[in-house]
């Protein structure tokens, strides 16, 4: 591998092979153009986020007051901020701290939600009911306020945002999963297995979960874009990692004092959040239309 970043595998080829893998995973379906664009954007964003954690055009943390408030253009494509750091480099470095964190939050919340719902479904009815009522109560609380309170009490760091977001978002998944499980558990093919005396755990693993997870994939992929906006919002409000963290919410917060004179400091991270939210939202839609039985061809 050479230092200049030239690589043998082109991004297009990677995109294609991921597309093929996704298609295979979803049962050999072909996706319309918009869906493919959304998937490509998501793949690109994730790659940028990964690379940006290690490599950026300039050092995203190097302060150089002589270079402060340079407008977008020569040398610094998106300009520099109030202490002379390169805005583009900070956005690239912050992508991982925003996107990958959002994906990790959704993954954790989904796994917890599915596990809780599956356990509840196997328990006696009163435990099942109480767990679901507890989820209802959690869901009735405004999640932004709850996350803010939680994160604030844990002290300002990215981990407290992560913890607060997971804590507020798994009940929705658990509720959804419980309803789907209830339906799957009463279907004839599950009853057919029950009449043979199949154990509950084996029943869950073999018939119930595989047939219930489609909606969870949809829910999770739709959730990511909301989570990106949410963690950026929390970071903007200051409960996230303290400065000089370059996550996108903090970047906007750092730029807001100079919004009238140096608009680029806050605008470009804002655009990055918008682009990511739209890309992940469209990808979520694409997953939904692929999984939706009404659009399924056999």
């Amino acid at each position: 591998m050479t230092d200049d970043g030239a690589s043998v595998v082109s991004p297009a080829a990677i995109g294609r092979s991921i597309g093929t893998a996704a298609r295979r995973a979803l049962g050999g379906r072909r996706f319309p153009l918009l869906d493919r664009i959304a998937f490509a954007l998501v793949v690109l964003l994730v790659l940028v986020a990964l690379v940006g954690l290690f490599v950026t055009p300039h050092d995203p943390f190097m302060v150089n007051t002589g270079q402060a408030f340079l407008p977008p253009g020569s040398g610094h494509l998106l300009g520099t901020d109030n202490v002379g750091r390169d805005v583009l480099s900070r956005i690239l470095a912050g992508a991982g701290r925003t996107l990958l964190v959002a994906v990790a939050i959704v993954l954790c919340a989904t796994v917890i939600g599915v596990l809780v719902a599956s356990a509840a479904a196997l328990m006696p009815r009163w435990i099942d009911e109480s767990v679901m009522r507890a989820c209802d109560i959690c869901m009735s609380l405004p999640s932004l306020v709850l996350a803010l309170g939680l994160a604030a009490s844990l002290g300002p760091s990215m981990m407290s945002i992560v913890f607060a977001m997971i804590a507020t978002s798994w009940p929705a998944t658990a509720r959804l999963m419980r309803n789907i499980l209830r339906e799957t558990l009463t279907s004839s093919y599950v009853e057919a297995a029950r009449t043979l005396g199949m154990s509950r755990l084996r029943l869950m693993r073999r018939h119930v979960l595989p047939n219930s997870l489609d909606a969870i994939y949809v829910q999770a992929s739709m959730e990511i874009s909301g989570t990106i906006v949410m963690i950026s919002g929390l970071a903007f409000l200051g409960v996230g990692a303290p400065p000089p963290s370059p996550d996108w919410g903090s970047l906007i917060a750092q730029g807001q004092n100079h919004i009238t004179t140096a608009w680029w400091i806050a605008l470009f991270p804002g655009l990055a959040i918008t682009l990511a939210a739209i890309a992940f939202g469209l990808a979520g839609d694409a997953v939904r239309s692929a999984v939706d039985p009404s659009s399924r061809r056999s």
């Binding site: 279907s187 004839s188 093919y189 009853e191 057919a192 009449t195 018939h207 595989p210 047939n211």
Partner: peptide, 14 residues
């Protein structure tokens, strides 16, 4: 052994 009423729902689609 039991044969169910509806063969559309009694076979695991996966």
């Amino acid at each position: 052994q039991l044969v169910f009423q509806d063969p559309y729902s009694s076979l695991d689609p996966r």
